[in-house]
Nucleic acid binder design. Structure first.
Lengths: 334, 334
DNA sequence: TTGTAGGCGTTATCAG
DNA sequence: CTGATAACGCCTACAA
């Protein structure tokens, strides 16, 4: 069932059918009704590929993320998809994992599917070596590329980032002001935001005159793994009275460690997470964390993207602040 | 840059270019090389829409889910996308929310995008009233429709379900055998799997001669909300010594309730969850739950889908069992 | 207000 | 092995 069939059945030309399809003003009410009726009776759906071919767009944007089952990224994906759909765009999701080769490959895959733009969700997309990011800039030459939680510079590339460094600095300041003398920072990867958070931590240490040596640790993923890791740290004689974790899952692991090791939270050990995810309230005690306002992140990104697609000029870098959420894993001031 | 440009630059016909593009055997090694070289030099990418128009497929499947930020559904989405990509299919994600009208609308949206098949992730897609599911059957006439965690009958519709009823019955049996006399069942919705789980609970009660009156409760979402709900139950004089929750989040809420109410787990209150999600190990104590083997669910669904797309006959209903994971919210036998 | 005809970039069917 | 040519289904000037 195509536009020709409909035109024949309705006794009009294909141009008229097309006009009805596209809500053109230049169709008499009578013919419109007639055409719509025929379409309805035959359950006609316009062919998306043919339309795409003519218009050179299927109103689809590609979303790349390392792992959409991650509790934080899952929220990002959800919100992006919702916003995009609201704007009439469909979402093509592609999870790349953490290996560069895969990222490149799947970015190509999305490009080959003819998406109108690309959104990279998560700072995992910025590599250590500048040349490893070349493929992103290459892509940005062809279509708008938005990076969430990371910085990409160059035309066609846009970034929306939360000031993670500041948030972690504030968390650290807080812990120090609440009496911590031996804070440690736990992170899972050297991603852009991982490095930002670390930087915030170190800045705070510096300002408080605490040596940064041996105070930050790359930690295995998973709650029990993190708990074990901290236990080993303790066994090796490394002492700490506060854990600043780069995400809530690590923080949940720290809480578990404290429970097993019999260390009272927050009296003997303070813990902070990041993201204000479900995990932070699922844990007991509930975890002090930073809310990086993912709704804001996503709606901003999509709204900027829409402007770019409309040919407008938009800032290439947008930064906003997180909000601290104080719960039971940190001491109360005063 | 299109196939004509390439053909001109390489001094061959477009048919040959197309053959090279599609890896046809009937091209001499020399011409193949020449054509590939030209493509490479010019960074040529075949137009996906034109190809789609010719082949009438873009090798894309639509994934519908109520809420991809749900910790369980997020995992499902992730695994589905991974499996589909492995099979050369891209995934178009669409989150519908829980309202019927939206579900219908977004299913249409995916259909209009020319997807090759539809996967409905989550039992939220089966409505109470049979006629409200008509749109699904309508869709199943046009393309393969797979439902995960729910039953859809009729040609073109396929279901892959975990035997949730059995799993909850076994959990209940276990709690009762471990001394519970006043178990309650908590659920969040009347979805297909919600009803299955309830049925399993009631079956166990019946077998143990426990009246089912007032033992199952529709519970608000969210960990603190659930905790509050149980506290209210207690305040109203309804007593219970075990909570069987239809998912881990509700169970986490039950654990929180117990902590606030000062009831010892598992001595005074046993709790079980469902899904074996991160929440079940994030909680303290860690929650006994049922692992409904989401990897198996997704890989089975995709592999069946591939067979259907290849024109093979596959069973319309596939059922498998969950695995019980015993942790610290239930007593140890013996 | 309506219709005709050409173009979008592939794939596929025939001849050669 | 290669090339010409007709689909594929829709959009959109341009004509009427």
């Amino acid at each position: 069932m195509n536009i020709y069939d409909i035109s024949r059945l309705a006794g009009v030309s294909i141009a008229t059918v097309s006009r009805v399809l596209n809500g053109s003003e230049k169709v008499s009410e009578a013919t419109r009704r007639k055409v719509l009726a025929v379409m309805d009776q035959n359950g006609y759906t316009p062919n998306a590929f043919a339309r795409g071919l003519g218009l050179n767009t299927m109103r689809t944007v590609g979303i790349l993320c390392a792992d959409s089952s991650d509790i934080y990224l899952a929220k990002v994906i959800y919100l992006l998809e919702r916003e995009l759909r609201r704007c009439g765009y469909a979402s093509m999701l592609c999870c790349t994992g953490y290996r560069l080769a895969e990222k490149e490959k799947y970015l190509q895959l999305l490009l080959s599917r003819g998406v109108d733009a690309l959104i990279l969700a998560g700072s995992q997309f910025i590599e250590e070596k500048q040349e490893d990011n070349a493929y992103l800039y290459e892509a940005a030459k062809k279509l708008p590329v938005f990076l969430l939680n990371g910085i990409l510079t160059g035309s066609g590339a846009y970034s929306v980032v939360c000031d993670d460094a500041l948030a972690v600095k504030e968390l650290t300041d807080r812990l120090l002001s609440l009496g911590s003398r031996q804070p440690v920072f736990l992170y899972r990867s050297f991603s852009y935001s991982g490095k930002q958070k670390l930087a915030g931590f170190l800045r705070s240490l510096a300002e408080h005159g605490i040596p940064e040596q041996g105070r930050s640790f790359l930690c295995p993923s998973g709650i029990p793994e993190t708990a074990r890791f901290l236990q080993e740290l303790q066994d090796r004689g490394i002492s700490f009275d506060a854990c600043l974790a780069s995400d809530d899952e690590l923080a949940a692991g720290a809480v578990k460690y404290a429970l097993h090791a019999g260390r009272k939270i927050p009296q003997e050990l303070q813990v902070t997470g990041y993201n204000n995810s479900l995990l932070s309230v699922c844990s007991t005690p509930e975890i002090t964390t930073a809310d990086n306002r993912v709704e804001f992140l996503c709606s901003t990104a999509v709204s900027l993207l829409m402007q770019v697609l409309a040919g407008k000029d938009v800032p290439e870098r947008t930064m906003y602040s997180a909000t601290l959420i104080c719960r039971a894993t940190t001491r109360q001031p005063g």
